[in-house]
Every structure is written in structure tokens, then in C-alpha cells.
Write a protein that binds this DNA or RNA. Sequence first.
DNA 1: AAGGGATGGTACCGATCGGTAACATCGGTA
DNA 2: TACCGATGTTACCGATCGGTACCATCCCTT
Lengths: 211, 211
Amino acid sequence: MTTTQPTQPPRQRILAVADDLFRRHGIRGVGVEAIAEAAGTNKMTLYRHFESKDELIAEWMRGIVAQKDRVWDELMAQNPNNPTAQLVEWSRRTADAFAQMEERGSAILNALAELPEADHPARKVIDEHRVREHERILVLCRDAEFSDPELTADQFYFLLEGAKSCVRCIGLKRVGEHLMQLVDTMVASRGNAGTSAPPRGSPRKRPSRRP
Amino acid sequence: MTTTQPTQPPRQRILAVADDLFRRHGIRGVGVEAIAEAAGTNKMTLYRHFESKDELIAEWMRGIVAQKDRVWDELMAQNPNNPTAQLVEWSRRTADAFAQMEERGSAILNALAELPEADHPARKVIDEHRVREHERILVLCRDAEFSDPELTADQFYFLLEGAKSCVRCIGLKRVGEHLMQLVDTMVASRGNAGTSAPPRGSPRKRPSRRP
DNA sequence: AAGGGATGGTACCGATCGGTAACATCGGTA
DNA sequence: TACCGATGTTACCGATCGGTACCATCCCTT
């Protein structure tokens, strides 16, 4: 049973329940009636707050990317003028988030796969977010003065997205640990690509604050 | 219009058309009737060859992974006793395949996202394939005597899967080129400590056949 | 020519789903 | 108390979809 406390207004409850159900069963796997019922309300109230299911999906996506943007803002405020630490911290948070998506993987990637229509309102939200995130990483790689920022930014992005999509076929614990090892090594080599095998049990966090 | 030459038996035509439609519109986005019609036949004949839509999906997936397995066999035969070249070749073929999936991304990843039910017949096909592919890469990393084969194997896998899922938000040309640069650098460093970024426009192929 | 298996055509069923209409109810405010 | 906006309830519509029954063909073999 997926209900929410009726103290919150219906709109919030619907969004919270939709988040849960969409993640677990996929967008097309759950109907509006099920969402309304699980939110302790009914279809009519749902349609008074969202003009269609597609708009609900888009709003759900806006919430997810807004949350991620808040995390970005937070970690950039926590590590001012330290692009390297910001990259590492973002990677660490991404790795930590793996624990919540072992079953179904990334909600954003899944939504993208479930929305083949290029003009779906949620698609714009997702596409813009991904471009923005990639741009963020690129700027950080430039600021961190990696030798080839474009290449290193893609490397970051590939590693992060790849790790996300591998959580389901490799154990999530190992994925998180290996991802952080790879990121640490990348950062340590200042983006001089490569990789490598840091000694086993190497330190996970390395703020490396530089003036 | 998505029709196939009626010279082939219906089963082949149905599978070919299903491959096209599933890729373009997603599994749940296309009905069996549309498939049958596009294949120049009808629903009845479809159900005489596939006991259900889910079984058709599973059979479609079996075809895809079988194709990938054939590619593996081929490139391993072409580079005998050279695990490094096999890894590079597999990466190159993956990068080349990006051109065909710019619109919708990887069919396997999409199918996974569209099949939330863990007991779906196609899920077993996909999961086994991913484990097998990861294992293949791991064995090659061991044979290539990388310093930390498990880590390097995950790095390969992350990079490849991540690049796949990024084809849609970054230009496919750059994704392919950067992926190959990263793989070349990884291989050149033998999985050991960081190296310098390869010069721009560095050689794409580097068989590096070693005795 | 006769037979039979594979295929095509059509119509249909039951279930689900997105979305709407019409009305009842409740809570706060003037 | 009278009112009004937000919410709950029920029933319904039209469309789509997976799946099936029934029968007409067609083609190959004997």
C-alpha cells in the first residue's frame, strides 16, 4: 500500500505517489487511477491539478531535475572555488544514490526510454537537464585546468552514466566503489586520462583543496 | 511504410518489422496488429508463430544478443591470443554502432526500462547477456594483464554503457571519438597509472599486437 | 484431381486506460 | 447562517490493445 499522510495537499501527495509508482513500475506501467487511489484521492482531483497524464509526468520530471539542481548548488557552495572537489563530490553523491535505484536504475534514463515521442513535454525537461549537467561538468573540467577539458568532461559523464546503467547487472556496492576509484584516479592525474589502478583500499575522499 | 519483401517466410518478416518498430517507437508503443500489418500479414499468423507479444519481444531480444555474440566470436577469431586488440576492437564496433541509435539509444537499455516486471521472458535474455558481456570483458582484462583487472573491466563497461546512453544528449560523432580516445589511452597505459592525454587526432586504431 | 497444412481476412471479446460529466460533501469565511 | 471554493464519489465514454474463433484461400504434395 502506497499512501501518504493526508495532511499534505492533494497535489503534493499525488506527486509523491507518482514518483514512487513511476520509479517502481515505469511510466506506462501505472495508470492515473492507481496514482490517485494510492494518493488517497481520486481521478477527478488529479485532473484538477494536472491537465493530463503527460503533464503529470513532465511535472514529476521537473521535480527530479530541480532536486538535482539543488544538490549541484549545494555542493558548489560547499566547495567554493574548488572545481576538482566539486567534481569529486558530485561523483560521490551519484555513487551514493545507486543504493536507491538498484531495482530499476535511473528514473531519468528509464523515462527517456519510455517516451519515444520527441515532442513529449517531459522530454524537453530531460534533454535540457542532461545538456545542462554535461555543460556543468565541462565548465568544472576547464576550471580545474585539466589538459583536455572536453575529453575529460565526456569521460566523467560516460563513467557516471555508465555506472548508473550498470547498477542492475553488477552489484551496486562494487559499482559505487569502482566508480569512486576511477574518479579519484582521474582527478589525481589531473585529467590526463588514463586510469588506473590505485592501490587497493585507496582513500575514497581526497578533497585536495588547492588555493 | 515499413514492409518487407514477401519472399521471406512470415516469421522472419515479423521479426524484422518488430525490430524496426520496437526500436523506433518502443515496445509498448507498438501493437501486435501494427507489426503484423507492416510485415504484410495479419495478427492470426503472428500468433501462430509467437504464443504472445511477450514471447515475440523475448525472441526479438534473443536475436539481438545472438547478433552481438556473433560479433564477439568474429573479433576474437580475428585477433587470436590478443586480448588487448579484442578489447579495442569491441570498443570500436560499439562506437561505430552509435550511428544507428542516435534517435532512440540502445535497444537493449530501452527494453530493460520498458520491462519493469522482473519475470518477463525478455528480461532473462537481457540480464544473462549483460552478465556474459561483462564477464567477457573481465576475462580479457585479466588476460591482458592489467594491474587491476576487475577495476579496469568495470571502467571499460562504464565507459561503453555510458557512451551508449549519452549518444542522445551529446553529438554521436564526438561520443564515438572520445570513447575511442579514452579506450586507447586506457589500453596504452595497460590499466596502470595515469598517462597524458593523447594528442588531438591521435590514431584511432592501435592493434598493438604483442607476442 | 484430391487432400492438407500454412496463410489471409474479418469480426469479435474482455480488459484497461485516459479523460469527463454531474452531483454530493466539507471547511473556512463574511 | 449563507456562501463558495476545493475535494470526494460514481458512473460513464471512446479508444486501444492483446488475444481468439471461424472460415476462406492458396500452394504443395501424393
